[in-house]
Amino acid sequence: MKLKEIQAILNARGLTGEENPELEVQSACSSDMMSDVLAFPKEHMVLLTGLVNPQVMRTADMLDIRMVVFVRGKQPAEEALELARECGISVLSTDHTLYNASGILFMNGLNNNVKG
């Protein structure tokens, strides 16, 4: 699923001004615990989170995550966005909750290859 589709489906806005609309992901992870994100990484993953500190970008960078979606309309500190730009991470923000945003993406086909 491409960033521009995720942005439209979640009615999300770009936060760094450098989001790549064609950036494609094949899986998703939703968590406020970066420890869990580090323990269960997948390839070409989008990270959905309500945590807004710069360590989100550090974690994403370590896992080669290139797309982060902040939920509940959260606005990260400029420091976190600056780090995202440095690392080439596209950042979106949606007003949906973590649960709803995850469900919407899942229903639209970003389902980590779950069968049935």
Partner: peptide, 24 residues
């Protein structure tokens, strides 16, 4: 062992301290 952690609440608020680190 996964899930065991002695991290403080402040650390958990930062998104860490889930007790996954050493095993990971």
């Amino acid at each position: 062992s996964e899930g065991y952690s002695t991290a403080s609440e402040d650390v958990r608020m930062m998104g860490f301290g889930a007790g996954m680190g050493l095993a990971n």
